[in-house]
Computed example of a mutant assay.
Amino acid sequence: MAAPARPPSAAPAALGLRERKKIKTRLAIRRAACRLIAERGYEATTVEQIAEAAEVSPSTVFRYFPTKEDIVLTVVLTDGYDPMLETALRARPADEPPIESLRVLLHQTLGAMFTEAPEEMEQRSRLLAEVPAVRARMAESMSQAGRRLAPVIAERTGRDPADLQARVFTSAALSALQETAVYWAERGCRDDPAALLDRALDTLGRGLTL
């Protein structure tokens, strides 16, 4: 799931030469990885091969992406993206139900991923469904994002920042994005993922009612 796409509400900042070079390198690594994985499969693709295809050293790959899983998962509430989500969440209307605030943010995330790289979104979702290591790393990233966003949800609902219910609620909403991606891939990427995400979030709002 390129460098993290910004939510529509976040104003783009001017980037210096160094930052532009970093983004260019990250893009080269990620695109090389996606191409090689499509050709050879995830397990058969090594970091060394990715580095060679991106024309960088393996140490450079690891400097930008701690694990191979991170290369394919970048932009999914990871790599500095969740601070922007935190800012966007704080900017939502004070009287908006928490599930609707999170719905807006997750739809922005999903929309940005499809706008920037729809084919990579399909590949990433398939890897989530098929590769346990990728799914585990995604769950870890979601957990980290949840710990950052849960205090905001708690504050917006008049709770203590460490409130357990706010933490569980936020984690469940973020997990909905992962389960939506896996479900979408398992069904051949034919459905509308935005509609699937709404279905998942609606379930949190009303419970398992028919």
Results as ranks from 00 to 15, higher is better:
Leu149Phe: 09
Phe114Cys: 00
Met142Pro: 03
Arg148Leu: 14
Leu128Lys: 10
Ala136Lys: 13
Gly158Asp: 08
Leu127Tyr: 10
Ala136Tyr: 07
Asp163Thr: 04
Met142Cys: 08
Val168Tyr: 08
Glu140Asn: 08
Leu128Pro: 08
Thr157Gly: 07
Ala129Gln: 01
Gln123Glu: 13
Arg148Ser: 13
Phe114Ser: 00
Leu174Gly: 05
Ser143Pro: 01
Ala129Arg: 11
Leu128Tyr: 07
Ile153Pro: 00
Glu155Cys: 01
Ser171Pro: 00
Met142His: 10
Arg167Leu: 15
Ser143Lys: 08
Glu155Gly: 05
Ala166Arg: 03
Ser171Leu: 07
Arg137Trp: 13
Glu155Phe: 03
Glu122Asp: 08
Ala139Gly: 12
Met138Cys: 15
Pro118Asp: 09
Leu164Gly: 02
Glu116Tyr: 13
Val131Pro: 14
Ala173Ser: 10
Glu116Asp: 11
Pro118Glu: 04
Asp160Phe: 03
Val134Asp: 05
Arg124Tyr: 06
Glu122Trp: 00
Ser171Phe: 01
Met138Gly: 07
Ala133Gly: 11
Phe169Gly: 04
Arg147Met: 13
Ala139Leu: 11
Ala133Gln: 14
Ala166Ser: 15
Arg167Val: 07
Ala117Arg: 01
Phe169Pro: 00
Val168Asp: 01
Thr115Cys: 00
Arg148Glu: 06
Glu122Lys: 15
Asp163Pro: 00
Thr115Ile: 02
Glu116Arg: 13
Arg156Glu: 01
Asp163Ala: 13
Arg126Ile: 12
Ala173Asn: 05
Glu155Trp: 03
Met142Asn: 03
Ser143Val: 03
Ala150Tyr: 09
Ser125Tyr: 02
Arg147His: 10
Arg156Asp: 08
Ala145Met: 09
Arg159Lys: 12
Ala139Met: 12
Asp160Val: 07
Glu119Gln: 15
Arg135Asn: 04
Pro151Asp: 05
Thr115Val: 08
Arg135Phe: 11
Gly146Leu: 01
Arg159Pro: 02
